[in-house]
């Protein structure tokens, strides 16, 4: 674009945008800064400390919840990515009856409010007399992650040249070999970003998890929620800060990776 550049925009517009972006980040930034605040009451700065982070390591409930969250996140992501990628391959590469309707239906779980998904799963699990716990959490997480995986992988497949797979077949590779030697290597960045999205959705989920977790198992968001509800102390700031930083790092790394593997559209 020849006539672009922030300098050509009206001043008020740039200022307004700056304020909006600042406000979008202010609360979390404040949270992170005050996670290093020595005061327990957390509103006035009384000095730098790492005490709240050290305190996290002493709390078994947080460590257990972290472990549960990781187990759930990794398992649910592995299952959701496998199921979702297979669906995406069928949608993008095969003609079958009802394809358009199927693709449309994939968006229904995405737009359905979490509270509805959670309640309906709770009702089902109770109806089937399934004990609530890690297993039900994983089942629920896979169910809400699969459609997101499908959307991301279908987008990647749509940008991928179908001739590449046909070329492999004229060179003597059968469908299975073509998949492993051509489709999968080119699809990796898409699968990785789908996995990242799926993991973060799972790791951050509170509403659905709180309904299907039962009393025995707690993931990290459940523990944070009860801490927020009961008494606000700076270790929540510390755990929040860690989550935000970890997410940003993951996001940055995946962004770099997918950029490096961008397929050429030549």
């Amino acid at each position: 674009m020849g006539a672009s550049g922030i300098g050509k925009l009206p001043r008020w517009l740039v200022a307004f945008t700056a304020v909006c972006l600042f406000l979008m980040h202010l609360p979390v930034l404040v949270l992170i800064v005050f996670s290093f605040n020595a005061s327990k009451f957390a509103v006035t700065w009384t000095g730098f400390t790492l005490a709240w982070y050290r305190r996290l390591l002493e709390r078994d409930d947080i460590l257990h919840a972290l472990q549960a969250s990781l187990i759930v996140g990794i398992t649910a992501t592995a299952i959701a990515v496998t199921l979702g990628t297979l669906i995406a391959l069928a949608l993008a590469r095969h003609r079958f009856r009802g394809r358009t309707i199927y693709e449309g239906m994939m968006y229904v779980p995405i737009v359905t409010p979490e509270i509805v998904t959670g309640i309906s799963l709770l009702v089902l699990f109770v109806f089937l007399r399934m004990p609530l716990g890690l297993a039900t959490i994983i089942i629920a997480h896979v169910a809400f992650c699969v459609p997101f995986v499908v959307v991301v992988v279908v987008a990647r497949l749509a940008g991928m040249d179908e001739n590449l797979e046909e070329a492999a077949m004229t060179l003597g590779a059968d469908e299975v070999t073509t998949f492993f030697r051509v489709t999968l290597p080119l699809l990796w960045p898409g699968i990785l970003s789908a996995a990242l999205l799926s993991f973060i959705l799972s790791f951050d989920d509170f509403v659905i998890t709180s309904l299907v977790a039962g009393s025995g198992s707690s993931t990290l968001p459940l523990v944070i929620y009860s801490m927020v509800r009961r008494n606000i102390e700076p270790s929540i700031n510390a755990i929040s800060a860690l989550i935000v930083v970890a997410t940003s790092v993951l996001l940055y790394v995946s962004d770099r990776m997918s950029r490096r593997n961008e397929p050429s559209h030549a």
Partner: peptide
Amino acid sequence: FQNYALFPH
């Protein structure tokens, strides 16, 4: 192929 379909990887 028309667009050559060279494997970019």
